[in-house]
Design a protein around this nucleic acid. Structure first.
Lengths: 176, 176
DNA sequence: CGTCTCCATGTGATTTTATAACACTTATCG
DNA sequence: CGATAAGTGTTATAAAATCACATGGAGACG
């Protein structure tokens, strides 16, 4: 499954075969495939993708944007799930712990993972105008950061890499 | 001015000449020099390093750890400055906006900048046991992230790079 | 089948982090 | 000096996250 970010307009169509990032794609298929992949992974790993958890993942997948826990909670409440913050946070914790979603620290918000592969090091590109978020890969430990860590004896366990800027659509709109 | 992170014990002494990261150094000199550098920079740039702002910077410099806004506020209150959140947040905003401090997104906390040079791209190593934070450099735009950005037409304006893991001291204590 | 246990869900209450809105003071500059 | 912009202070409130505890359901096991 490949899933590319689509900003703004939701034109269904074949996804361009460019590297991960901002580009058009068939969003319905994207969501469907990701849910199937998540179910498969959970079944294989003995994890319980319960209704709330599944629904939260679905909500995240439907937007290629980061959603705050309270935005999710509002939806859950409307749909008859619990109405208190822990309901949303617990589902999100589960998804994040199992690599099905990521937290965008910069935004205090969450996004579905579009890279079903295990053990990747995600990086994000966040558009400061339209809030679209694209997930991609990084290997920060290979560059200057890794050098500094090795030199000083720091053991990296996890990295947060988030780039803020302008997505292609917003660049065009802003500059003509 | 060079300023290295000192975790735990505060042994004064010559700083090891290793790359930026975790290592011993003369902390008093580190703080003093950083304050002088900040004053110089502010004077040169027409910025007003007022008493609250200066004091907040000093508080941050005294610890090589990230401090939450409310921890800072507590100190300010004790010292007769204003006692409400905006007092701390405004000083922190000023310091961050002018490159004298950084926000550690992962921790929702702030740390003094130890790299007086303009326009650097900071990266942080955060120890999950003792909370020490070391600042170093990164060039995320040169690696996989930069490739993805260029390929998809995303314009990076700012990056957040934070590595979480174990500092040398905590590795030793945990395993030694 | 019962029941024990673990995990998940639900709720109320609280803590932590951050901002809005407005009054007052001080610095700067014509 | 007076106008204006910037800084400080306060009250109030919003937003994000966690704690503590009760309830309920799925599997494991006798």
């Amino acid at each position: 499954m490949k899933c590319y970010i689509m900003t703004r307009a939701t034109k269904a169509g074949a996804a361009a075969k460019s590297p991960l990032g901002f580009c058009l794609h068939d969003h319905d298929a994207c969501v469907r495939d990701a849910l199937v992949a998540a179910e498969t992974r959970c079944a294989a790993g003995g994890l319980r993708l319960t209704p709330v958890r599944r629904r939260v993942l679905e909500l995240l997948l439907q937007e290629h944007r980061a959603l705050g826990a309270y935005a999710i909670l509002d939806r859950l409440r409307e749909e008859g799930f619990g109405s208190q913050p822990p309901v949303a946070y617990r589902a999100l914790d589960f998804l994040v712990a199992n690599g099905l979603a990521h937290k965008i620290e910069r935004l205090n918000a969450f996004i579905a993972c579009v890279h079903p592969d295990e053990g990747h090091t995600p990086a994000f590109m966040i558009c400061r105008l339209c809030d679209a978020v694209a997930e991609t890969y990084s290997s920060p430990a290979r560059g200057a950061l890794g050098d500094a860590a090795r030199a000083s004896g720091f053991r990296i366990e996890r990295t947060v890499v988030e780039a803020e800027g302008l997505c292609p659509t917003c660049i065009t709109e802003a500059e003509g």
